[in-house]
């Protein structure tokens, strides 16, 4: 009888864990779901539009293409990232203490919501942790782009 209890207990703790996980998932609020949606779409869009140059790990390419792991740069320029993705960039910047001045091509075809997803993905990957950047924020920032 005693031994039977013992063989059962791993299953029981597993069941408790699964229930706990479900419990957590249902506790996810609207914002968490939004974040997950943006982040997942952002990864797909990143792979299609950004990965060639910035690499799957965000490392860029030596001195030619800047990495996306400079958390301070991305935090300071959070409200400019949408414009940079949409219209490209042609200026000298300092990333991780190194200078980069290669032209970044524009992505005019991307709608605001896709740009928001990419920014969400980038600013929460490669060591960054900025949380959700939604379409509303993107549309607001994109109105302020200086060309």
């Amino acid at each position: 009888m005693n031994t039977g209890m013992e063989t059962n207990s791993p299953f029981r703790s597993l069941a408790v864990l699964v229930m706990f996980a479900f419990g957590l998932a249902s506790c996810q609020n609207e914002k968490d779901l939004d974040y997950a949606r943006y982040y997942t779409n952002g990864k797909q869009l990143y792979d299609a539009n950004c990965l060639n140059c910035h690499a799957s790990d965000g490392a860029g390419l030596r001195g030619l293409i800047p990495p996306l792991s400079d958390t301070l740069f991305l935090r300071k320029n959070r409200d400019r990232l949408a414009c940079i993705i949409k219209h490209g960039m042609n200026e000298k910047i300092q990333v991780n203490g190194k200078e980069y001045d290669q032209l970044m091509p524009a992505n005019e075809q991307l709608p605001d919501i896709d740009i928001a997803a990419i920014v969400t993905y980038i600013t929460n990957s490669f060591g960054n942790d900025q949380g959700l950047y939604d379409q509303e924020e993107a549309s607001r920032d994109l109105k302020k782009c200086v060309e």
């Binding site: 060639n52 140059c53 690499a55 390419l61 030596r62 030619l64 293409i65 290669q102 091509p105």
Partner: peptide, 14 residues
């Protein structure tokens, strides 16, 4: 100034 496949190619060529 190639924006498409060159960075990948040269990342690999390195």
């Amino acid at each position: 100034t190639c924006p498409s496949i060159c960075p990948v190619m040269h990342r690999n060529m390195l």
